[in-house]
Nucleic acid binder design. Sequence first.
DNA 1: ATTAGCGCCTTTTTT
DNA 2: AGGCGCTAAT
Length: 663
Amino acid sequence: MKLNPEQQQAVEYIGGALFVLAGAGSGKTRVITEKIAYLITQAGYKPHHIAAITFTNKAAKEMQERISHRLGKNQTRGLIVSTFHALGMRILREEATNLNYKKNFSILDSSDSAKLIGEMLASSGREPIIKAQHQISLWKNNLLSPDEVYAICENDWQMQTAQIYSRYQATLQHYQAVDFDDLIRLPAILLRENGEIRLKWQNRLRYLLVDECQDTNACQYELLKLLTGLEAKFTVVGDDDQSIYAWRGADMENLRRLQQDYPQLKVIKLEQNYRSTARILKIANQVIGNNPKLFPKTLWSNLGEGDAARIMACRDEVHEAEFVVQQIAKNKLLYDANYADFAILYRGNHQARLFEDALRVARIPYQISGGQSFYDKAEIKDVLAYLRLLANPNDDPAFLRAATTPKRGIGETTLGKLNAYAQQHECSLFEASGSLNTLATLSTKSRESVQQFIALLRDYQQRAQTDDAGETVQNLLDDIQYENYLLENHAENPKMAESRWKNVQDLCTWLAKKSEERNLVELTQLIALMTLLENKDEEIDAVKLSTLHASKGLEYPFVYLVGCEEGLFPHADSVEEHGLEEERRLMYVGITRAKQQLTMTHCKKRKRAGTWQYPEPSRFLDEMSSDDVVRIGHTSGEVVSQEKGRKNSRALLAMLNQKIGGN
DNA sequence: ATTAGCGCCTTTTTT
DNA sequence: AGGCGCTAAT
């Protein structure tokens, strides 16, 4: 299919700064793909001078595939398609010495960093830790150093947190580790302060494309500005109405700043939606109309009127799950649809469980995306801890995990003594374990355990120099008898052990495959950023379960938007100030995932933290005009069925499917 | 004296 | 799945 005039314009405008305001379903990924093809084949850019930046690995992978498909692998060699964090890591690795880091730095995940902050905090408990971590992250994302933060603190708590921030950074440095925020912050600081290095990278990356730019934080925006320089050869694509990451520092002000910083900024709007029926778009526009507008736009489509959306009132969450599953079973037969045509979208991950149960009972295949990621899994973190420790012996968090997994007779007391020594001598736990003075303070048994562990690590540090990464890890797993550890740990559930071991094996396979081109250090850093390995079950025909956040960018003929209740969605913590606007954008994202049929559910009562709650239906449901919404379920006694327009729907679905096939 | 294992609690969204 | 406190095992 041909590009529409606006899309074509967005592809061919390469004179300077360009902002493509791309509504949901307006074909923005296609525009980015075509533009990269245009830059390479028409405008004379070499692939290695172009970088396309996304926010998730999934999006990066998908774009990489589409570009390869469009141009062929040979034509795209050297093209950078990566997340902001992966690009930052690349810069950081090359420029590490300029930032007082070694190339083998570790990357801490957020639970590592939470643990660190927790140790520095006077009080205990999860909440204050999360709060402090969040505050520090916000400061970092706004490019504020600890010293700059001291000057602007408004209360005692902020003052204390600022002190922790300062100590936290010192500790990271000591570990030769960075956190996720640093991956972008440190390169931004370096490029800002060092003109020579800035020029070097500006020369290397001559055209930048940024997807989902409404989700950039101040740090990422700064990095973008520094990389593109005065020539401003870049395209940013985004939609202010789909900004849903303010809670982690994303700032829509960046879109406004864009106009100030680049007065020549060209803005192209993509308003034609190729995804949803007119009535679904009407609801979406109504809801988002309650938010203040940054760049006004109205989505339209020529895919027909379609059915009214449905709002179902359920008795409780069990009823909700049963209803949705029963509807899926029914609609699958009625429309001769695939399972993969259905999606269940929810606000929080914990909501997934009941739907999983109901789907299992009904023997309907399902697939969860956006839940806990592959690398959040314990077994992967275990292996990664060993890798990190081999790459960087200063990585104390990795030492703590590896030393105690599998259990090898090193416990709390021993680690406490090692830590005391390490603090006193300002060295790593690894070094402390090698010190004869420390070892003398341990019992015979503990001492032997520690010495064995250290000998193991030294052995593998040696091997990693010569053997390839895949082989090293495979041998290491044998030596620590990791498979046995899994089996013993899940003695009553061998299937669990099996699936975990399989995850570990998948990781090994991946390492073996990649270890031709990259060394162990690089692979370890790469893994830290990944949220999913090759999604081989991507294509299976299964009902999709997803959080609203993780659903952005995806589309389904049938969407069930569940748990539309005050307190849950909008979430209770966000019903003040800007929080509510963001929840509304989340609702907008949810609605615009639907191509043909949209069903929203809410429960009369729901068990929260052990007690029954009686939530009101979500306020967002009241923002939809009654012309385009049908209320069914509990209130009216019986489930009212929708006969009207069904034939049209069937024809529409056929048409939609044909379009998908035709691409 | 030390470590390991069991059962208890909770969980908004993610690189 | 992880953190906490308690108890059993060495």
